[in-house]
Computed example of a mutant assay.
Amino acid sequence: MFEKVRKAWRGILPAQHTERETSRERRSHNLFEAAAVYVSACAEDDQDRIDEAAGWVSPEALSFGVNELACRALIALARERDESPATVARSLLGLPAA
Rank of each mutant, 00 (worst) to 15 (best):
M1N: 09
M1F: 09
F2K: 08
F2R: 13
K4C: 00
V5T: 11
R6I: 13
K7E: 14
K7V: 02
W9F: 15
R10P: 04
G11K: 13
P14H: 04
Q16D: 06
Q16N: 01
H17L: 13
T18R: 14
E19W: 08
E19G: 03
E19T: 10
R24T: 05
E25F: 13
E25S: 06
R27K: 14
H29E: 04
F32P: 05
F32N: 06
A34M: 07
A35R: 09
A36Q: 13
V37Y: 07
V37C: 08
Y38W: 15
A41L: 01
A41Y: 01
A41S: 06
C42Y: 01
E44N: 08
D45C: 07
D48K: 11
D48S: 09
D48Y: 11
R49A: 14
R49L: 15
I50S: 04
E52R: 07
A53Y: 04
A54S: 11
P59R: 02
E60Y: 10
E60P: 03
A61P: 01
A61I: 04
L62D: 04
L62K: 07
F64L: 14
G65V: 10
N67K: 14
E68K: 13
L69T: 10
R72T: 06
R72W: 04
A73S: 15
L74M: 08
L74A: 04
L74W: 04
A76R: 14
L77D: 01
L77E: 09
A78L: 08
A78Q: 05
A78D: 02
D82N: 15
E83D: 06
E83F: 05
S84P: 00
A86W: 01
T87I: 10
T87K: 12
A89R: 14
A89D: 06
A89N: 08
R90T: 03
R90I: 00
S91E: 15
S91A: 15
L92V: 11
L92G: 05
L93Y: 03
G94V: 10
P96K: 09
P96L: 01
A97D: 12
A98W: 08
